[in-house]
Amino acid sequence: MPEDAGLRVEPARGPARAQAVMRRLGARGAAFLGAGALLLVITIFTINWFVSGRFHEATDNAYVRADISLISAKIEGYVQSVPAAENQSVHAGDILVQIDPTDYQARVDAARAALAQAEGSRASEQAHRALASADVQRYRPLAERGLLSPARMQQLEIQSREAGGDFTAAAAGVDAARAQLAAAELDLERTIIRAPIDGVVGDRQVQVGQLVRTGSPLMSVVPLQSVYIVANFKETQIERFHAGQPVVIRPDVAHGVRLRGVVDSIAPASGSEFSIIPTDTATGNFTKIVQRVPVRIRIEPGQEGIELLRPGLSASVTVDTRE
């Protein structure tokens, strides 16, 4: 038996201890790195909030709006044609609807004939007045010398005044006939309904052959080129708001799109004041609710993605209130 058979041989512990130490150092280093990274993030976030974040007011209670023109009939008649199709782009002055002009053309012709008759009557009365006035001027010297009776002279003067009154009435008749002709021509012009603004046709309700009456809704023209945003901010957010402040707009229709805008104006009252039934705060069961104030935001033109906006769509906005 060897001499060292009764001795225990222990494995070398140097490499194992070194690995354990390295593991402990690695764990501590990772913890330190993690803590440092977290501290750095917190520091950056704090600085960013202090420099700019605390001046930003945001809301997702915002919607795309446009000053939509509601097209309606100004006269009564049957629709002859509808050149404007649904979702068609139109320009100001383009024909949208044509109402049958036959009856209105007849009224114009009748009004022109009445005007001609009135002008003829006025001319006749003008000649009569001139003749009566000339008689007075011609016979007055004779009456002053006693060659013409006072009764006859008085009769001539009365005839002259009557002729003047008849001429005045005839002149008024001409003015009335001209007014009737202007009204008839205006109604004839209104048989052609034109687009008042540039935009896109929507909500077309009129059809060929339909009888429309004064005020009948026909269609709408939506000015997509001039949409804007109405954002309803809490009353606790608008303390530093004023016109001209920059705004970032994130439309829900495309989450990756960021549009630039500016605060255009702030509503003169909260949204609840413009509702059909305003909130009554003088009740026994009063509960204070934070009110919303509409803020109109103008979108800077020429940006990529603005063509996606449609009135009624939602958006999120952030206002930078820094001076």
Rank of each mutant, 00 (worst) to 15 (best):
P2G: 15
G6W: 10
R8I: 13
V9N: 13
P15G: 03
A20K: 09
L25P: 03
G29L: 13
A35Y: 01
L40E: 01
I44A: 11
T46S: 14
T46Q: 05
I47V: 15
N48E: 06
S52V: 05
R54I: 00
A58Q: 11
D60W: 02
A62T: 04
Y63H: 08
V64A: 08
K74R: 12
V79D: 10
Q80W: 12
S81C: 05
P83L: 12
E86M: 12
H91D: 02
A92C: 08
G93S: 10
Q98M: 13
P101S: 07
Y104R: 12
A106M: 09
A110M: 06
R112C: 03
R112G: 07
A114P: 01
L115G: 05
A116R: 09
A118V: 10
A118N: 09
S121V: 02
S124A: 14
S133W: 01
A134G: 03
Q137L: 13
A143P: 03
E144W: 07
L147C: 02
S149E: 12
M153V: 00
Q154R: 10
E157P: 03
Q159T: 11
S160R: 11
S160F: 04
E162A: 08
D166C: 01
F167A: 15
A169P: 02
A169I: 11
A170G: 10
A170I: 04
V174F: 08
V174M: 09
V174N: 06
A177P: 04
R178P: 00
R178M: 08
L181K: 14
L181D: 11
L181V: 05
A183C: 04
D187C: 06
L188W: 07
E189Y: 02
R190Q: 14
R194D: 02
P196R: 06
G202W: 02
V208R: 12
Q210D: 10
L211M: 08
L211Y: 09
L211F: 09
V212T: 06
M219A: 04
V222K: 03
Y228Q: 01
A231D: 02
A231S: 06
F233P: 03
E235N: 10
T236L: 07
R240M: 03
H242P: 05
V247T: 06
V248L: 13
D252I: 01
D252N: 10
D252K: 04
H255V: 11
H255C: 00
G256M: 04
V257P: 03
V257C: 04
R258F: 13
R260V: 00
R260E: 14
G261R: 07
S265G: 12
S265E: 07
I266E: 10
P268Q: 02
P268C: 03
E273P: 01
E273Q: 12
P278A: 09
T283S: 15
T283P: 02
F286T: 13
K288Y: 10
V295D: 05
V295P: 04
V295S: 06
R298K: 15
I299K: 00
I299R: 03
E307C: 08
R310H: 14
P311M: 05
G312N: 04
A315W: 07
V317C: 08
T318W: 03
D320M: 10
T321Y: 12
T321Q: 15
R322P: 01
R322Y: 07
